[in-house]
Amino acid sequence: MSTKTPTRPPQSNLARRKRAERVFYALCLAATFTAVLLLVLLLYGVIRDGIGRLNWEFLQSFPSRFAHRAGIKAALYGTLWVISLTGLIAVPIGVAAAIYLEEYAQKNRLNAFIQMNIANLAGVPSVVYALLGLALFVRFFGFGRSVIAGALTMSLLILPTVIIATQEALRAVPSSLREASFGLGATRWQTIRLQVLPAAFGGIMTGIILSLSRAIGETAPLITIGALTFVTFVPRGPMDSFTALPIQIFNWASRPQQAFHEVAAAAILVLLAVLLVMNSIAIFLRQRQRRRLS
């Protein structure tokens, strides 16, 4: 039975494996530092140029042809208007679509086709949405170069990502929660409203906020639908024309005068601050969610 066949002792390649380990570690570390270093350099440049111009007056002034008087009131209000409306339009539609796809839809060809298209739409360049928005909202519906036309175009742009993020959040809700609810005789809608949505709330909000953050920084769609670049008023309603922070930044940065570059840098700082606040909210909500479910 157990006649011993002489076996060679396994050759030790430990030293070689450890060397590979160290090389890989160094590579990863270098990659991380490259990314962080670039970010730091960028931030340093912007802060150095812009911090001097950043004050309350800057936030409260309209643009001017004199750099020292120029402010971002119109652009800031325009951005807030567009983003708020975009949220109001895209969030209900996106969340409802995700609930349908995730909780109600049967697995058939049509729904698989819809699902595939949504994934593809998420990768379509923003300028394509912009052209659609120009043809549809600005011209066909006659909204002109208004806040609502901009918000609708932005909504188209972020809808796929809102849907996908929401679907993922819904999928992350443990099925045991659904079963418990169904098992007590709850209808599908009761289960979704009382169990699934509250459990997915953090994830859904994270997706929405990240999508809106993306929309804030988008410039191409707004330029394409004809947002103005020099505006000395704040929009009073969704049908007013407007400008937005990225457009204003682009406008100032493309001027030859150094003073305007500083104004642009200050505006970038404001934009970054808005984004930072939004992302912090997303992180906060995700953390709270994690604590609630554990």
Partner: peptide, 30 residues
């Protein structure tokens, strides 16, 4: 309606992430 009459207890305890009271009251409430 059937599941109201035929209740079910699962393999892993699956309380809702709610208070003890709300867990029990969930069924009657819905």
């Amino acid at each position: 309606d059937l599941r109201k009459r035929v209740g079910m207890v699962f393999q892993r305890p699956n309380p809702f992430p709610m208070s003890i009271f709300d867990n029990i009251a969930y069924g009657p409430r819905i």
